[in-house]
Design a protein around this nucleic acid. Sequence first.
DNA 1: CAGGTCAATTTGTGATCACATTTCGAATGA
DNA 2: TCATTCGAAATGTGATCACAAATTGACCTG
Lengths: 229, 229
Amino acid sequence: MNDPLAKTIPPDVGDGTPPQRGSARERVERTIRHALLTGRFVPGRPVTLRGLAQDLGVSPMPIREVIRSLAAENALDIRPNGRIEVPRMTPARLVEIMRAREMLEPELAAMATGNLSRADAKDLTRIDDAIDRSIESGDAEAYMRLNHDFHFRIYRAAESKVFLPLVESLWLQFAPFMRIVYGRVGTAALEDHHKDAIAAIIAGDRQALKAAIAADIGAGMHLLQEAGD
Amino acid sequence: MNDPLAKTIPPDVGDGTPPQRGSARERVERTIRHALLTGRFVPGRPVTLRGLAQDLGVSPMPIREVIRSLAAENALDIRPNGRIEVPRMTPARLVEIMRAREMLEPELAAMATGNLSRADAKDLTRIDDAIDRSIESGDAEAYMRLNHDFHFRIYRAAESKVFLPLVESLWLQFAPFMRIVYGRVGTAALEDHHKDAIAAIIAGDRQALKAAIAADIGAGMHLLQEAGD
DNA sequence: CAGGTCAATTTGTGATCACATTTCGAATGA
DNA sequence: TCATTCGAAATGTGATCACAAATTGACCTG
């Protein structure tokens, strides 16, 4: 079947609460973004308005708007014939995405340094522990969700309305592909620099956090090069 | 009146040609993007679906999709109450946009170096001459259009489907504000490093082109600091 | 069994409508 | 003169519909 969403999101909980302004769209957007980020959409597979609409229990209308948003972020591709699909990854594109990440994310993390409290560090430690468990158990979907949570918990603290959307766009672009990679090579080989990042946050060391994030991205790229063999 | 578009785009040329698939949406998108980039939209002014629809001679439907796209690129802001407006600029936001530009655009130009021929250099010279004329005559709108043409003629040559959209998003964000600045301080003080860039392209000097673009962005920022006094 | 043909189905697009919310403006009051 | 109120107008949202283009799949032909 072609509904990676129906399993996780009930069509509609008819709980009698009156729908609020823009609520359908927001719910649809949250759902689809989350599905994209955890790799529930397969690159190259066509996506249809009516299909998603039925899965999510709404009319095609809010779907159309969300699809347009995601297409504008290059998270979805609208072909010349109107067909919608998750973009296929190419080696060249992947390299560019990672280069853009290396330029933006360490800087964004550095901007966040001053705004990250010890409580944030504690939350990040908790997330990182869960990440380790997901790697052990080989749960790729949980890993992706938690890894995203970890990074964006940091990035959001920067409170940048300019950098954050750019980085979000990049994650939406490579996430579906990464899901394929994890499915192929497993999660065992995954290594990150999260603990370095947490230490840098506790120390309030801006440069160290920047370096840790850069190293983390570099490690991800290294995994991909090995997987390519 | 609230229709910065009606003046430039006739509602509809009823030439009998049957509309093609997605053509209304594309025309609307081109028109609004161009209007944004040349500062025809004033920050803070509300934008309405039906208003634009009437100006462009279409139903509100294609407008809705284009607005969603542009909102996803942070070129428009959709308030919690659903109101659409051109984002207001703040000093902090402007600084972030310029920092992001400094990170991405020189690199994008460097990527383009090998793909830029002598013919491209000739075109760029022609555009730069027109820019000089627009500065002399004080035609801010022409200046903005030509300056955008100059930069993106270079950037497009990089053929990067990752970097180019990120940079386009940034331009859409600061353009409406720059129009205000030019209106306030005039265009006389404008200086750029376009001739350095053209020389670098002819020489095929990747680093020099990178430096020229970086300097060009820096000069724009310098102008803003002076205008802020 | 492979390749082409054509009709039925599916798809995105654009328009229109009903509706709740918000915004705006004129009338009213102190 | 200024603030308030209240009704009319305008706005975004979500649904539905008609339509043309594209896709699909069964059927036929060789």
